[in-house]
Simulated assay, not measured.
Amino acid sequence: MSSWHEFIFMGKHGAYVWSSYLMTFFVLLGLFFGFRIMLRSLRKQVIAEANVKQSDKPKARKLKVSKAE
């Protein structure tokens, strides 16, 4: 690498390369923060469900399966 100028412009492909890196960075950043928000929401939901009294919880229904004749 003879100079920073050649590294930045990468033989006239610099705009494509650096914009690709930038878009990838923003997508990964969005995924990171999106999953953090989703995790917080799920954690609050689990804590809220754990704090509900056992008698207040809806009971699970049993499935009735009819046998095919």
Rank of each mutant, 00 (worst) to 15 (best):
A15D: 10
S2V: 04
S41P: 02
F32L: 15
L29A: 06
I37M: 05
W18I: 03
T24S: 12
K44G: 08
F33E: 11
Q54I: 15
V46R: 14
K44C: 09
H5F: 07
A15P: 03
K53P: 11
K62T: 04
Y21T: 06
L28N: 08
M38D: 09
F32T: 08
Q45E: 12
L31D: 04
S20Q: 04
V46P: 06
G34K: 00
I8H: 01
A60P: 01
P58F: 01
L63R: 05
M10T: 07
K44D: 12
L29E: 03
A48I: 07
V17M: 06
M38V: 11
W4Q: 07
Q45M: 11
Q54L: 13
R43C: 13
Y16W: 13
N51Q: 03
F35E: 04
L63V: 01
S3P: 03
F7A: 06
G14I: 07
L42G: 14
R40E: 13
L28V: 00
M1N: 10
E49S: 05
A48E: 13
F7M: 07
A60F: 05
G11Y: 10
D56P: 00
F25A: 07
H13T: 14
G11I: 02
R43S: 15
K62E: 13
G11D: 10
S3I: 01
S55E: 13
M23I: 10
Q45W: 13
K67Q: 14
R61G: 01
I37G: 03
F9T: 15
